[in-house]
């Protein structure tokens, strides 16, 4: 199998790697880039554990070939923190609310929730539920996750309002 030279930007860092054509973006991130925070829960697009943002849109990294990401900007869970000493408001809220139990679904859900809140910091309950409909969590019953997203959204909206005032 011939390898293809792939250049992508992951969490703001330019990466180049050689990948085989059949390699999924998920496998390339986990095995070539060493970014194992993105999880493989089903490998067929049913669970959402491998959700990453590619050029601004959330996708299942298992349902995309690495070569299809040529030139793309990718955000994974490892890039969610604004800096190494600061947690994203969603991460803070997940801690507080107990929204992460076994944690295997958390990277995908956090990425999905970020997409949701970036567009709409104050989503309705219905919008939160709809936004997470492609992410399976088997530990929490989702209740704590919904709470955490609401809390983070409120804080992000407040911070945004403050920065506009300032």
């Amino acid at each position: 199998m011939n390898k293809i030279h792939l250049e992508i930007t992951v969490n703001g860092e330019a990466r180049s790697m050689m990948v085989e054509g059949h390699r999924s973006l998920l496998d390339a991130l986990r095995e070539e880039a060493g970014l194992t925070g993105t999880k493989k829960g089903c490998d067929v697009g049913d669970c959402g554990a491998c959700t990453v943002i590619v050029d601004g849109r959330p996708v299942n990294a298992c349902l995309m070939l690495a070569v299809e990401a040529q030139g793309a900007e990718i955000l994974t869970i490892e890039g969610l923190q604004p800096d190494p000493d600061t947690l994203h408001p969603l991460q803070e809220a997940f801690m507080e609310h107990g929204a992460s139990q076994c944690g295997f679904c958390s990277p995908g859900i956090l990425i999905m929730a970020k997409c949701l809140l970036d567009r709409n910091p104050l989503p309705s309950d219905e919008e939160i539920r709809f936004g997470l409909s492609g992410n399976i969590c088997r530990c929490t019953g989702y209740t704590k996750i919904f709470d955490a997203i609401r809390t983070a959204g409120r804080r992000m909206a407040a911070a945004r309002a403050q920065s506009v005032e300032a």
Binding site: G45, G48, P58, V59, M112, G134
Partner: peptide, 9 residues
């Protein structure tokens, strides 16, 4: 159709 993530592909 499926999920938001799937619909983006």
């Amino acid at each position: 159709l499926a999920s938001i993530q799937v619909r983006n592909r």
